[in-house]
Nucleic acid binder design. Structure first.
Length: 797
RNA sequence: GGGCGAGUGGCGGAAUUGGUAUACGCGCAUGGUUUAGGACCAUGUUCCUUAAACGGAUUGAGGGUUCAAGUCCCUCCUCGCCCACCA
């Protein structure tokens, strides 16, 4: 089992140059045959350095792209850059660099690095979101959404990151902290641009059923959308004409309501203070100030239920007509439902806690058993509910809603998508304001609406675009005196919501993409990316696509067919890689020492790619893969001009089948295991038929593209190994016999070799020859024999 | 607190429909090779008993279904991820 060293640097450079010169990986978009396959990976942000996560993200799908091509598919495997974003701007502030230059320099570095990986991207379709040729269409698509009322401007309570000095979308806040920089977010009331993703909540949820995604990804999205069914119910307020509306998922517990609660932000509170209905104004205002000072996290983390009764006003129970108190309390969320709830302490945990602290009555309306403790949240038989008593709470629900004049309703946890950012390095929002302050979409002939360059970067919390004289002059020149530009830019997730459409026709100056190409190539066959995007990019892109579908711009309801979330590579110590822990793995070091092929194979071998696990980097792992490749290379010296051995041919065809299947499932680890086993079999003989060796090289080619290309040339083969056909996986039997396991009472007691298709009697006779079995059968025949041909014979005594 | 997923050697992991548990690799051990280190090669490596095993045990714990369970069902424990006062 000899190894033979090779000069990986030379081999890699030569192969990469050959592929580039031959345009080997360019997909023919207009190809009319039925073998197209769109393989998509999430395009990177040009941060400047390819880390191990990038290798994992790009080199693994590349293996699949290469397998598919050899299997005759017309594979579109494009790449681009999600090039707008904060780090470029931060570099500008910190180091006085031009964000554009910083970004473009980084892209150049990363293009070279991606090539060194041996990735078979089709660079002719490259998309860069910060280029005017691209963002003009981001702007155009936005204006279409605006025309159809899917984009709007509103004053709302929004999340503000004090460090990045910009607002954030709901999805970009985790536990009250900025998802990007980890700073605690603040609440601000600002006028901002939103997209009506909530209009699509139900379709985003329902259409998940049809998608062949893993259940955990679907579950995460549907939890994020958060559908609740229930009802709006109205409570008459003593001093007011308009009733207070509440949303509840348990209208069946209406008879258990002992008070109502409104969120401190609820408009009713201000109204009641202003019209003098409230007698304890001072106390109420103190509470309002106290909650306003709290951060979102403080409000939700501190489970202690605070609140203040509104003295002087009362509500009327819609069924019993009893007078009940009204509270303000910050456990009620202003932005969900109606911002007000009916409180049922006996059957809701939060109401129970609040009632306990404030000494409020608790009325049980669902019959409890001895095992039940309050609060009891399950459904059951109604009690204390007038004429509804005795009925099942689920069954009676609709009648109860009707009885109190309520209406059935559905609520979603999902909020509209806040897309404006008070930052410079982003796509300008294509809106101008007339002298009265009304927004107007910028007409198509003025697109792209270019990002100005005369900007003061000093972070002030105001949009940097507001410091541009050129932008203001441009606006007035085109639209007239007194007109003002919108100074916010888009959330970068807007840019990335449609980039995969642009790959299909990236140079088109007349349309965002080609409708013919979209019809042929959409939806994307398989999309690989990070699980962190499940409730961000993946949800945004689905919404955007559905909106475009409704406008007749795209031919499919869903953008992506299969979705695979990849895992994470941990440091050698099993912890997440971080500079402070000193466990960061730099792929360049390993590539330099062992070669790109060894790093690729190592990552493929580390664990299953079809599950988003986390895999620690083993410091000896790449070395062992290099050893494997050197054994492959050494085998070349054994190649002789002899006919193929039948046994070897059959073995290789089985390997081909295994590798195809595993690659299809993204289980590259077991595919490599099969290749290792095959290699050992090939190493067995004194010499090896050239054809057999070539077959093996073809199977290995997607995994180790450089070395296999080199050996292909050594053996004087035509063209590139990457454009030949995948070896046939004819199912030929390796031999004429099967190995069958013999069990007694389910315990393995030996094995026998039987001719294929042997019957039970033959199998039993043969099994009886095993000494242990013969001994066991001394006292009589087995009670039962279970014989699974080709696998097992189990004797039950 | 809720939802989802997962627990297999010292480690990463393997095991279509229930049908030889621990493939493949790392690490480790012994030997070889080498001036030495490293690299490389050979053999072994789930655990226990053992000179060796052809003996026994074993897929987080306990129970169940079955001729047969890592795989299916029930109870419990642990870990991970996501959501989290969403009425």
């Amino acid at each position: 089992m000899a190894t033979r060293s090779y000069d990986h640097k030379h081999i890699e450079a030569t192969a990469q140059e050959k592929w580039r010169a031959d345009n080997l990986y360019q997909a023919d978009i207009s190809d009319s045959s039925d073998v197209s396959y769109y393989l998509l990976v999430e395009f990177p942000y040009p941060s400047g350095d390819l880390h191990i996560g990038h290798w994992y993200a790009f080199a693994m799908p590349d293996i699949y792209a290469r397998v598919l091509r050899m299997q005759g598919k017309n594979v579109l495997f494009p790449i681009g850059f999600d090039a707008f974003g904060l780090p470029a701007e931060n570099a500008a502030i910190k180091r006085g660099l031009d964000p554009k230059k910083w970004t473009y320099d980084n892209m150049n570095v990363m293009r070279a690095q991606l090539r060194h990986m041996g990735a078979s991207f089709d660079w002719s379709k490259e998309v860069v979101t910060c280029e005017p040729e691209y963002y003009r269409w981001t702007q155009w698509l936005f204006t279409k959404l605006y025309e159809h009322d899917l984009a709007y401007r509103a004053n709302a309570s929004v999340k503000w990151c004090p460090k990045d000095k910009t607002v954030l979308a709901n999805e970009q806040v985790a536990n009250g902290f900025c998802e990007r920089c980890g700073t605690e977010v603040e609440e601000r009331h600002l006028t901002q641009w939103f997209l009506r993703i909530t209009n699509y909540a139900d379709r985003l949820l329902k259409d998940l059923d049809e998608l062949p995604w893993k259940e955990d990804i679907k579950d995460a999205q549907s939890a994020w959308i958060g559908k609740s069914t229930g009802a709006y119910l109205a409570f008459k307020i003593s001093s007011q004409e308009d009733p207070l509306r509440v949303f509840t998922t348990r209208p069946d517990t209406i008879y258990g309501v002992t008070y109502v609660v409104v969120a401190p932000e609820h408009p009713l509170v201000k109204k009641l203070i202003d019209d003098g209905s409230i007698s304890n104004v001072k106390e109420v205002q103190e509470y309002l100030e106290k909650t306003a000072r709290k951060t979102e996290r403080e409000r939700s983390e501190n489970k202690e239920k605070t609140g203040v009764v509104l003295e002087g006003v009362t509500a009327t129970h819609p069924a019993t007509k009893k007078i009940i108190p009204i509270y303000i309390a910050d456990y009620v969320i202003g932005s969900y439902g109606t911002g007000a709830v009916m409180a049922v302490p006996a059957h809701d945990e939060r109401d129970f806690d609040f009632a306990y602290v404030h000494g409020l009555p608790c009325v049980v309306v669902i019959k409890a058993t001895d095992n039940d403790t309050l609060p009891m949240t399950r459904a059951g038989k109604l009690v204390n509910s007038d004429s509804f008593s005795g009925r099942d709470s689920v069954e009676a629900q609709t009648d109860m809603i009707d009885a109190v004049g309520g209406e059935s309703a559905t609520q979603y946890r999902l909020r509209d998508w806040l897309i404006s950012r008070q930052r410079y390095w982003g796509c300008p929002i294509p809106i101008v304001y007339d002298p009265q302050g009304n927004p107007h979409a910028i007409p198509e002939e003025h697109l792209p609406w270019k990002l100005p360059t005369d900007i003061d970067f000093a972070p002030t919390g105001k949009s940097p675009l507001a410091t541009s004289v050129e932008l203001l002059e441009r606006t007035e020149r085109i639209f007239g005196k007194g007109w003002k530009p919108e100074c916010d830019t888009f959330d970068t997730f807007v840019d990335s919501s449609w980039y995969f459409l642009r790959y299909l026709d990236c140079k088109n100056a007349d349309a965002f993409s080609s409708s013919v190409a979209m019809k042929k190539w959409l939806p994307v066959d398989r999309y690989s990316g990070g699980s962190e995007h499940t409730t961000m990019h993946l949800l945004y892109a689905r919404f955007f696509h559905k909106a475009l579908y409704d406008l007749g711009f795209v031919p499919t309801k869903e953008p992506f067919n299969e979705r695979f979330n990849r895992g994470i590579i941990m440091g050698p110590d099993g912890h997440k890689m971080s500079k402070s822990k000193g466990n960061v793995i730099n792929p360049d070091d390993f590539v330099k020492k062992y070669g790109a092929d060894a790093v690729r194979i190592y990552l493929a071998f580390i664990g299953p790619y079809n599950e988003a696990g986390s895999y620690p980097w083993n410091l000896d792992g790449v070395k062992s893969m290099r050893r494997f490749l050197e054994r492959v290379y050494a085998l070349e010296e054994k190649v002789a001009d002899i006919p193929e051995q039948n046994e070897i041919t059959v073995m290789l065809s089985q390997t081909a089948e295994k590798v195809s299947e595993d690659a299809q499932r993204f289980k590259f680890n077991t595919a490599i295991s099969a290749l290792m086993i095959a290699l050992r079999a090939l190493e067995g003989g004194a010499s090896l038929a050239k054809e057999s060796y070539l077959t093996f090289l073809k199977l290995l080619a997607p995994f180790a593209p450089h070395l296999t290309e080199h050996v292909w040339e050594l053996l004087a083969q035509e063209g590139s190994i990457h454009s030949v056909s995948w070896p046939q996986s004819a199912v030929a039997k390796a031999s004429e016999s099967d190995t069958v396991v013999v069990q007694i009472n389910g315990k393995r007691r030996g094995e026998i070799t039987l001719p294929i298709g042997a019957d039970e009697n033959t199998a039993f006779a043969s099994a009886s020859n095993i000494p242990f079995v013969a001994e066991a059968l001394k006292n009589g025949k087995p009670k039962r024999i279970i014989y699974v041909p080709g696998r097992i014979i189990n004797l039950v005594l």
